[in-house]
């Protein structure tokens, strides 16, 4: 409990080290997370995603400034990609937010994806819990917006902001499924650039066509911003507040959110555990090597090999 107590009292060193241990999958960190869990659930989590270079970090930087003016404490988790070749990473989101590093009400942590594709790793999820337990009012999670499938963030955040810039593909892009369907707020950043009106129209059309998805009463607003000049940031925070009120507006809304989050957290955790324990076990087994050999000699197809291995593993587990 010693570490957990330090975290709850806001000890920055302890928080930083625990997040490191979580990232490095140190078994003891899991025990601390268990102790911390009762102290979580108080922070408001905002997710920001979008393609590289659209200005997510700059927007986060300005949001921190506004939230601090309103006397709110802020935790930031900035996720950048791990190189698939070297396993290393350059975590550069902090460059845009460094002016807040001396502010005791702000804690900023850069994290690498370490080979996950969803953009939000299990360790980011746990890190949200840590910042929550340390008492941050708002937690902003910035994730690599690499693709249209990046919807992980939604299930961990109360409010998800999708950041776009003018001129990123034609209106067909806006019809595609994926990332654009999950935004609670859309921000067109660098709105002074040519084509901003068109981008707004594309997004608006997409939202209007999807009317029944927004039957719970929240229709995503589309805002324009120039984050570098702090233009439009106040309005974004205003919409976050509106969305928060919307989520809290009824018991039903609250329980839907809680159920979805609990379900997703648990599914992801189990998935993670299966990958790290069961998969690792299989890959290091003789059977696996033998199956590989047979596939290479084309004596068996990979579908059958997979069935054999997995079914055997499951049966063993049931005994």
């Amino acid at each position: 409990m010693v570490i957990a107590e330090k975290i709850i009292s806001g000890d920055i060193r302890a928080v930083a080290r625990l997040i490191r241990d979580i990232d490095d999958t140190v078994p003891e960190a899991r025990e601390v997370l268990k102790d911390l869990y009762p102290y979580t659930g108080k922070a408001y989590v905002v997710g920001i995603t979008g393609a590289p270079g659209v200005g997510k970090s700059t927007l986060v930087d300005q949001m921190i400034a506004h939230l601090r003016k309103a006397k709110k404490t802020v935790g930031v988790l900035a996720v950048d990609p791990t190189s698939p070749f070297s396993g290393g990473a350059i975590l550069g989101d902090r460059v845009r937010m460094q002016r807040h590093s001396m502010d005791e009400g702000v804690f900023i942590r850069s994290m690498a994806t370490r080979g996950y594709f969803g953009g939000l790793t299990q360790s980011t999820r746990s890190a949200i819990d840590v910042l929550d337990a340390m008492g941050k009012d708002y937690i902003i999670v910035e994730t690599v917006g690499v693709g249209q499938d990046e919807i992980d963030i939604v299930r961990s955040a109360h409010t998800t902001i999708i950041t776009l810039v003018p001129g990123m593909g034609d209106d067909i892009q806006a019809l595609k499924a994926g990332i654009l369907e999950v935004g609670d707020i859309f921000v067109i950043n660098k709105a002074d650039r040519e084509g901003a009106d068109r981008t707004i129209n594309d997004i608006r059309l997409m939202i209007e066509m999807d009317e029944k998805r927004y039957k719970d009463g929240w229709k995503p607003p589309i805002l324009t911003a120039q984050a570098v000049f702090d233009k439009g940031v106040k309005e974004i925070l205003g919409e976050i507040e509106n969305h928060r009120k919307h989520l809290l507006s009824s018991k039903q809304m609250q329980s839907i959110f809680k159920y979805e989050k609990a379900r997703n957290d648990l599914v992801e955790m189990i998935k993670d555990r299966i990958v790290s324990d069961v998969l690792a076990d299989i890959i290091h087994s003789r059977e696996f090597e033998e199956a590989l050999q047979l596939i290479m000699e084309r004596k068996i197809d990979p579908y059958t090999a997979c069935d054999n291995i997995v079914l055997k593993k499951i049966k063993k587990g049931n005994k």
Binding site: S83, S86, G88, A89, I90, L91, G92, R94, V95
Partner: peptide, 16 residues
């Protein structure tokens, strides 16, 4: 240097 560290498999936080 940051790039070289990344290529060596380290996680590099860059502050500017």
């Amino acid at each position: 240097i940051a790039r070289a560290y990344r290529d060596a498999g380290f996680e590099v936080v860059y502050t500017g």
